[in-house]
Design a protein around this nucleic acid. Structure first.
Lengths: 212, 212
DNA sequence: ACTGAATTGTGAAAAATATCACGACTTATT
DNA sequence: AATAAGTCGTGATATTTTTCACAATTCAGT
């Protein structure tokens, strides 16, 4: 909407920076240099300075960055003032892992609703989140714009279609299926098997001390 | 070691291609075009052709690619002939999800050993994988080169150090901690909270129909 | 055989990302 | 006040990745 100039690669690193700044702040640190931050998050210090510079001059030459100031800045940049409600579809092991994760701690994100087909799970609370019957997806999804998809691959497209119909904006897809959506909806894929296989491939084919 | 010319971006897509070729093959499809594949995996068709071209001329102009041939080619490229044994450290919800995932179906990867600190879990089998006491990591890890790290963040570095000492080559790190390792060891980070937050950020700041 | 439609493989260009390297400024110390 | 050490912000450059666009080739139909 507004800051379209920020490179996607930078945007993907912002949450990471944010979390580490939070840690530093909690440790009572007042200032931090790009070099220190670099060691903590394993991103080149020049890249960090460049990333920050897209938002203006946030630091002081010869000094570094004021942790509290930077944190406040990122808080508003990352929209941490307003809670984002998220639905979780599919309460298997992976889904349950998400339900137990406290996103509120660092991020103003809350999973408010979960869905599953298993009647044993429907009606329970997991990690404080009520689990509804997936067949009632249409009624219970009101106003939620983001969904985490942790269902079996075969269900992925059917459920996606329902989410789309209910006006979802973004989907974090953990199924191996590459789901199809209208082009105004954003889908991020995280494919655990692909990640594992890619790691194995890199180990076998790339010589040591190569980055990422 | 050998094919160092292949771009990293390409290498990361190979497992994805491989899985979809497998699907096609099981469906009995004999040929496929880069355009079809593109729709299935959501990667631009020119990118797919470019990716394949790093391995030589695998297709036929005006025809496309022979599914079986391509599959065989990738099988050997991705070292699918030799089983890769993987250890899983931390049998929480996320870890359990991995233990139930059958990587052998498409990939010749097998989780052979799991570790946890919880005495209730130690000694059990989950998804056919024996769970050992994490304090016996040193004795039971023999010869395993790849580990999946799904422990609480505070434990991450300590356990990593032990893995390094035992000669691990690669770690798939699901903890929010950015672990430190000697530079010849490869670590891939998958940070679930960061992924979720990045998605939310993109939704708020990037206008629609933007890619990835 | 010929024609038209489909599709690859790739040179070239564009776009995105990362890194280098240094002037300018800040702080601390003497 | 002067000096030294530390650090940012950024122009310039390098590297990586994606995309365009088209000649060359193949296939299917007549």
């Amino acid at each position: 909407m507004d800051q379209n100039k920020i490179p996607q690669a930078t945007a993907k690193r912002l949450p990471l920076y944010y979390r580490f700044l939070n840690n530093l702040n909690q440790q009572g640190k007042k200032r931090v240099s790009s070099k220190e931050l670099s060691e903590a998050v394993k991103v080149d210090s020049a890249t960090i300075r460049r990333d920050f510079s897209y938002f203006g001059a946030l630091g002081k030459k010869g000094y570094g960055y004021n942790v509290e100031y930077l944190l406040g800045f990122f808080r508003s940049t990352l929209d941490q003032h307003e809670v984002t409600e998220v639905a979780l579809i599919g309460v298997g092991n992976l889904g349950t892992a998400f339900l137990h994760y406290n996103f509120m701690k660092n991020n103003n994100i809350r999973i408010t609703t979960a869905f599953d087909a298993d009647t044993e799970k429907v009606g329970t609370d997991i990690g404080g989140v009520p689990v509804y019957d997936i067949h009632h997806l249409e009624e219970k999804l009101d106003d939620i714009k983001v969904a985490i998809l942790t269902v079996p691959a075969v269900e992925a497209q059917v459920i996606t279609d329902k989410l789309v119909e209910k006006g979802i904006s973004g989907i974090l897809n953990f199924t191996p299926a590459r789901i199809s959506v209208p082009k105004h909806i954003r889908v991020h894929h995280i494919d655990l098997a692909v990640e594992l296989q890619a790691l194995v491939y890199f180990l076998k084919h790339y010589s040591l001390d190569k980055p990422e």
